[in-house]
Amino acid sequence: MIKKYLKLWKLLAILSAGSILSNRIDFVSYLFGKFIRFGFFFAFILAIFAHSNSLAGYGKYEVIFFFLTFNIVDTLGQLFFRGIYDFRNEVRLGNFDYTISKPVNALFFSLSRAVDLIDFIFLIPIVLIAIYVGFQIGHATIYNIFAYIILLFFGLFVILGIHIISAALIVWKTEAENAIWLYRESMTIGRFPPEIFSPKIKFLFTYFMPIIIIISIPAKAFLNMLNPVWILISFLYASLFLGFSVLIWRRGLRHYSSASS
């Protein structure tokens, strides 16, 4: 079963890469757009630290590490689940009928059908910069690095859950495309350490729109600033959230009214 889906994912990734590379202007423009956005925000952080020694108690490299973790997680989400951005059109035009009639999981197919090569390329320098910044911070142990990677995985499960809920909402009500954009906008709060927010906002973005679990908790684990109990909380949260999202998806599918029939 897993082998079949890995093979299918690989095939979809190859097809998607072929499609992206056949549109060279789009490919270059999107890639440059990503680097420009990254570059400007990077310059913004450097500008902040030209006028201040710390931000909410964090030093320059620590704040940069939060920013890089945001970029890694956000990019991984887009790399693996890019299909959500075209899902509304699929449902609206009735193409989703063809998807559900295929002998594969419709949700897997819909989210994975547009694996993004551009995000993969963008990810390489970001990870390299994160490694460099990690060395500059200096005090991360093997345990910190391991916890960081494990927590990134939990974060990805939560992101998957958010994408599944967004897909369910689109099936339910075609116009609900903005759920995914609300998530994307909310993700931007993960660019900076959570300590800059008030306790109420932190609570909101930890449990209801769990950006802090997705980005800040892994980054704090790397920076050796995390109470280990948060690893357990993140695991439980990611498992429950993912399970809940699948339930919503199944419920949403019952409301699907084929647009083409």
């Binding site: 201040s52 903005n178 906008e185 900076f192």
Partner: peptide
């Protein structure tokens, strides 16, 4: 509505960041 909500989040984000700085 979704677009405007996104704007509100973006403005609040900037306000919070600068307040912290």
């Amino acid at each position: 509505y979704g677009f405007r909500l996104g704007n509100i989040v973006e403005i609040l984000f900037q306000v919070v960041i600068w307040t912290a700085i």
